[in-house]
């Protein structure tokens, strides 16, 4: 479904986001306080750019962002992005605000003050490094939303849970097993891989990949439980 997306400030990120969403009927509104960038962007992308600071009421009013679906603040100053998101949400009723920050501790702080999504590249880098290190330990972790994590692990034949149904393994109540990826065709299918939604009767076999969702703090406990050896 086509959306109205506001791209407020930023340089390379703004260009990349513009290219990524400038299709499927989306309406893109670009605001930038860097005059040189705004002029160059308008010329190369053949798209109007509103010049001005996106935390200013008059600039957002001129840009016509009322009821936009998404507002993305991309400047390199965290508090400018915060103020722009507040203005967009409170005075122009945008559906969702996304705020880029450079200080990782601002992720939790800005969310607690009402910003819908706060993105920090440093924090994501740390997350990626952490996930990479877990892969070596037969565990792939994906952060869904801050404290909520999905993790994938492979079942080996020497695990206690192997050849047991989900009902019988008595997974602690800290997690939900979402689905199982099987490297063999489902009944009536030629596809060599299939995903089975987890039910109590689903039996875990060697080489299955199991996907669970849990709180970040419980990942280690869950990992220990799932990878117990016979």
């Amino acid at each position: 479904m086509a959306k109205t997306i506001v791209i407020a400030n930023g340089t390379n990120e703004a260009s990349y986001i513009f290219d990524a969403f400038n299709r499927d009927g989306n309406k893109l509104i670009v605001i930038n306080s860097n005059k040189e960038f705004a002029e160059e962007f308008a010329k190369t992308k053949r798209h109007d750019v509103i010049f001005g600071a996106p935390w200013k009421f008059q600039v957002l009013e001129k840009a016509g962002i009322t009821n936009a679906d998404i507002f993305i603040a991309l400047s390199n100053k965290d508090t400018d992005n915060y103020a722009a998101c507040c203005m967009a949400e409170n005075s122009f009723y945008v559906g969702r605000t996304i705020c880029l920050v450079s200080n990782p501790s601002n992720v939790e702080v800005y969310k607690s003050l009402g910003i819908d999504s706060v993105i920090c590249s440093t924090l994501q880098l740390v997350e990626n490094i952490r996930n990479e290190s877990d892969i070596n330990g037969n565990l792939k972790v994906i952060t869904i939303e801050d404290e909520v994590q999905a993790f994938e692990f492979q079942v080996y034949s020497n695990y206690v849970i192997c050849e047991k149904s989900i009902m019988d393994i008595k997974c602690p109540p800290i997690a939900t097993i979402a689905c199982v990826k099987r490297f063999k065709p489902a009944a009536g299918s030629n596809d060599p891989v299939h995903i089975e939604m987890a039910k109590g009767s689903t039996v875990l076999h060697a080489n299955d990949s199991v996907y669970c969702v849990c709180h970040r703090k419980d990942v280690e406990e869950l990992k220990k439980f799932m990878t117990r050896e016979k």
Binding site: T79, Y82, C86, V109, S112, L113
Partner: peptide
């Protein structure tokens, strides 16, 4: 912008 953020923070947090 910093002042706005700090005002929100000081009251809410």
């Amino acid at each position: 912008c910093l002042n706005l953020f700090l005002a929100h923070l000081c009251e809410s947090r």
